[in-house]
């Protein structure tokens, strides 16, 4: 299925929060948690998106933020989208007692990860963070799956009034975890990595960069200094790889390849 663009109909649309929708496609796409597709919105653009529902009626969960995602949010059941993928290296579950931190729409790959972990008989605690209560993603879904959930909101409308990283710090003091996963804003992930490292926890981070090809040839997504490609060797990297990145938490590159500091 990785060959070419595969055009399919939208089968269902779920409004998750005020600004986030899940699109279920008429496509059976086996994939592992953390993998992504390139989603073509015909006539607009093509974007890398984490797969939030692998397998039957494959789904992606999308925050409305630019012209393309706005167009996507306006689309209806039966409309046509193009898919390339699945691509990228998945999260790899090796621990027994996991903790995952998802900020905002960063929950998209964390939810299938948690489901998979539980299916594999592991314990998982998920810290779900959002600006406010109405923007929290996949709380019910993960409750149903049997994950332990810690909620944080910036404004305190639900759960703890703090950032996910504060909740992580507190939780890790209990010392019962052996592996950490994170997806969300880069600054958050940078801190998660720092905290997890201090507690001796191996961590996997879901990296985001500007993508063009998605298949490891254009060079748009490479990380300094080793030249690893986020679209191919990533998007999920281990702490030992990330520690060698000069750009993580510092700069990204725009569509021209120019550095843009955070």
């Amino acid at each position: 299925m990785t060959d070419g663009v595969y055009t399919v109909k939208i089968k269902d649309i779920v409004k998750e929060t005020k600004n986030i929708k899940t699109f279920r496609l008429d496509l059976d796409l086996p994939a592992l948690p953390g993998q992504y597709i390139m989603l073509w919105v015909p006539g607009y653009d093509e974007k890398p998106l984490s797969i939030s529902y692998p397998g039957r009626d494959m789904g992606v969960t999308v925050l409305r933020k630019g012209a393309t995602t706005a167009r996507l949010h306006d689309m209806k059941r039966g409309d046509i989208l193009g898919v390339r993928g699945p691509f990228g290296r998945a999260f790899k579950i090796t621990g027994e007692r996991l903790i995952a931190v998802g900020g905002g729409v960063g929950m998209a790959p964390i939810a299938p990860l948690a489901e998979k972990a539980i299916e594999m008989g592991r314990e998982i605690t998920v810290i779900i963070g959002a600006v406010t209560k109405s923007e929290l993603l996949f709380v019910d879904r993960l409750e149903r799956a049997g994950a332990e959930i810690i909620i944080t909101t910036d404004d305190g409308t639900c759960g703890m009034k703090c950032f996910t990283t504060h909740a992580l710090e507190k939780e890790l003091e209990k010392g019962r975890y052996d592996e950490c996963f994170t997806c969300g804003p880069e600054i958050m992930m940078y801190k998660v990595l720092e905290i997890a490292k201090r507690h001796g926890l191996p961590t996997q981070v879901s990296m985001e960069r500007y993508f063009k090809c998605g298949i490891g040839i254009c060079g748009a997504c490479v990380m300094d200094d080793g030249g690893l490609r986020v679209c191919k060797e990533g998007p999920n990297f281990r702490d030992v790889e990330i520690e060698k990145f000069k750009d993580f938490g510092k700069y990204t590159r725009d569509a021209s390849g120019k550095k843009v500091y955070w």
Partner: peptide
């Protein structure tokens, strides 16, 4: 500096790209 065209910018087809 040039940002270039919008995606899709690279696609696979039969026997090539």
């Amino acid at each position: 500096a040039r940002e270039g065209y919008k995606n899709p910018t690279v696609i696979k087809i039969e026997q090539g790209y």
